[in-house]
Write a protein that binds this DNA or RNA. Structure first.
Lengths: 111, 111
DNA sequence: TCCAATGTTCGAGTATCGTCGAACCAACGG
DNA sequence: CCGTTGGTTCGACGATACTCGAACATTGGA
């Protein structure tokens, strides 16, 4: 009955947004791959399986970026079967950082 | 030769804002020292000599951060005598990234 | 039961970042 | 001139960040 060594039963680390320094939120957004993920989540508006985000990186790297987003308080993850469904924490973000996400999303894709 | 503004032969690199990827702007803001500098500039509204920003780092580090801000298109620098005066590029930022700077500045200082 | 699918974690390589002291430079004031 | 002042640059350091392949865990189906 050991559950050692793997995160299958571990709780996903999803911090309270107010515990996250704004610099961490900005750092999470300051990466091309992660910004593409966030854009996809924002445009779709709902949940996406991790595998959705095919942006030219390996699945290990993708998993890493999703973890960064989650631990920066930007996303929430729901586990279902072998898949994990990710969604943006829009309302919470809007409450704590009004206008921030919209401003970033409105920015030109390629500057 | 005119004596007008002979500010040494070093050219400051101040890119056009549209040439700067938004991720670079976000990365520039995603540091505590730099965010404090930006806050100071925004609250004061005008120009500040580099020496103004005493945030517990050496002057070499301060100079580095000011360079990062400048090259991310966030600030402009005017050379006068032995001093350099830094100011925020608010209007340009507002035009290209409407609401972004305000949202960041409105964020809680101590998250 | 075995296998494929979906993700995560590990270990390592490379790159970039933040930091400092020391050396440097240009401008100013005696 | 010479020294001081304001600031930059250099070289180095340790810490982080991004990336990948490989190995692993969990689920669900043949």
């Amino acid at each position: 009955m050991s559950n050692m060594g793997y995160a299958g039963h571990m709780e996903l680390h999803e911090p309270e947004l107010r515990e996250v320094p704004v610099t961490a939120v900005l750092a999470a957004l300051a990466d091309d791959v992660r910004l593409q993920i966030v854009r996809t989540l924002a445009e779709g508006g709902g949940e996406y399986a991790c595998g959705t985000f095919e942006f030219g990186v390996s699945k290990a790297t993708r998993s890493h970026h999703l973890k960064v987003l989650r631990e920066a308080g930007l996303t929430r993850t729901r586990v279902a079967g072998t898949s994990r469904y990710v969604r943006l924490r829009r309302e919470e973000l809007e409450r704590l950082y009004p206008g921030l996400l919209d401003a970033v999303l409105a920015a030109p894709t390629r500057a």
